[in-house]
């Protein structure tokens, strides 16, 4: 095994373990902290896939914004954090079976697909992926419409969240 493969297995184990702890944690703040570990592992994978921008953006957006927002929400719904009522609902067996079946199906599909063993294409060393990504996002031949729609979506979410959470008293 090459060092890169060992690194992959270590990071994957940490990420999946943290994800399992999210599902299993009784204390919600612990769940959020494990979620952060999991997000960090995914960021490492982005870096391993030569997507440096996405790796850093993952840390900024998921850890810096989403996870902290979740911790904040958990603190605001505080007496739920130390809740001793059962963690799982009545359909947990069905959920477990469905999740395992989905995992088994996906693994079977991946292994039976001939393209799954490809190794990465050599990257063009002259091309700068960040400027490529930037021009793809704003060029009319690229994804400018989706980009603008995403910004409208974010604005809508901002206003919507404010309206919903507003305490009209």
């Amino acid at each position: 095994m090459t060092p890169v493969q060992i690194l992959f297995i270590l990071v994957a184990a940490v990420t999946l373990g943290a994800a399992l702890m999210v599902v299993n944690a009784r204390n919600l703040v612990h769940a959020a902290l494990w979620l952060i570990v999991s997000f960090g592992g995914v960021a490492v994978f982005y870096a391993m896939l030569n997507a440096g921008f996405l790796a850093v953006a993952q840390v900024v957006i998921y850890i810096g914004a989403i996870a902290i927002l979740m911790i904040f929400a958990i603190m605001m719904t505080r007496n739920v954090a130390g809740d001793s009522s059962p963690r799982f609902n009545s359909s947990q067996i069905i959920g477990l079976v469905l999740a395992l079946a989905l995992f088994a199906g996906l693994v079977w599909m991946t292994l039976s697909w001939s393209g799954a063993t490809t190794t990465p294409m050599p990257l063009d060393s002259r091309a700068d992926p960040i400027s490529q990504l930037g021009s793809a996002l704003v060029s009319p031949d690229g994804y400018v419409l989706a980009f603008e729609l995403a910004s409208i979506l974010l604005l809508g979410a901002l206003v919507g969240a404010l309206m919903i959470a507003w305490d009209r008293k």
């Binding site: 919600l28 739920v80 959920g95």
Partner: peptide, 21 residues
């Protein structure tokens, strides 16, 4: 790896009671 992560997430959605989880 992605399939495993997705399945764990799916289990959390199907089985946990707390909406934040």
């Amino acid at each position: 790896f992605a399939a495993a992560l997705f399945s764990i997430g799916l289990f959390a959605v199907l089985a946990r009671r707390n909406a934040i989880v």
